[in-house]
Write a protein that binds this DNA or RNA. Sequence first.
DNA 1: ATTCTTGCAAACTATTTGCAGAACA
DNA 2: TGTTCTGCAAATAGTTTGCAAGAAT
Lengths: 133, 133
Amino acid sequence: MVEAPRSTRQRRAVSALIADLDGFSSAQQIHARLVAEGETVGLSTVYRTLQALADSGEVDALRADDGETLYRNCSRGHHHHLVCRSCARTVEVEGPVVEQWADRIAAENDFTDVSHTLEIFGTCGSCRTGVGS
Amino acid sequence: MVEAPRSTRQRRAVSALIADLDGFSSAQQIHARLVAEGETVGLSTVYRTLQALADSGEVDALRADDGETLYRNCSRGHHHHLVCRSCARTVEVEGPVVEQWADRIAAENDFTDVSHTLEIFGTCGSCRTGVGS
DNA sequence: ATTCTTGCAAACTATTTGCAGAACA
DNA sequence: TGTTCTGCAAATAGTTTGCAAGAAT
């Protein structure tokens, strides 16, 4: 049997913060932000909490290219990100096409419990115009 | 100007080994295998070489869920992966639909120089059947 | 009261880097 | 010969874990 975790100040703080976040954040960023808000939480606890949340499916976890694990709220609908390489501006986009494609591909190969990660990178208009390197 | 790297015994050994590999291997696995074959190569050199190869586009690099970076030969064109969560079996898939969708989304938001990452995860047939939990 | 959780510090893993000597062009 | 490359060891970065003290039920 799976036990529901106890409700503690720390876990509530982490969950609350995550619920407010739009994009992805690393465990360290989340911890830093909590501390900045005046919460007293240990970094290990943040890691442990995020892992638990990810295991239970309440948050999505994904590895960034630099090796950090990023987490994001998973309550709102599934969507992806269009991120500017230069200024990191992020646009949330939905892709029914992609979802369906991914499901179909998985089915064709006899895979179940399908999930996927998708990020699009590019240079946004402002960065192209305004910022010469 | 980009300088072509020098041809050394170590780099040749790494390239040769990668060319022989079918799936993904970590830097450590590649190093271990080279040593096993009798090559004398330092681990750092393997890391540096793989990075260079990845930068120049000669190999694909991808982060595994456990944090290791995996490399594979990149002779064929752009494609994505369908990976089994349980046994890590990987199927290479192509997605013209996705490529087009990504380009269109980016264009709609005035982004240029578009690239994207996409991985699909699931549980493969064998793992579903064979492994009862 | 008992059991789960926290936080610190130390341990770990994968990867990167400084530097002196070796290898290439 | 003048760079570039290598290998070692030490340094990083992110994350995990042991354990004693603190909370939750």
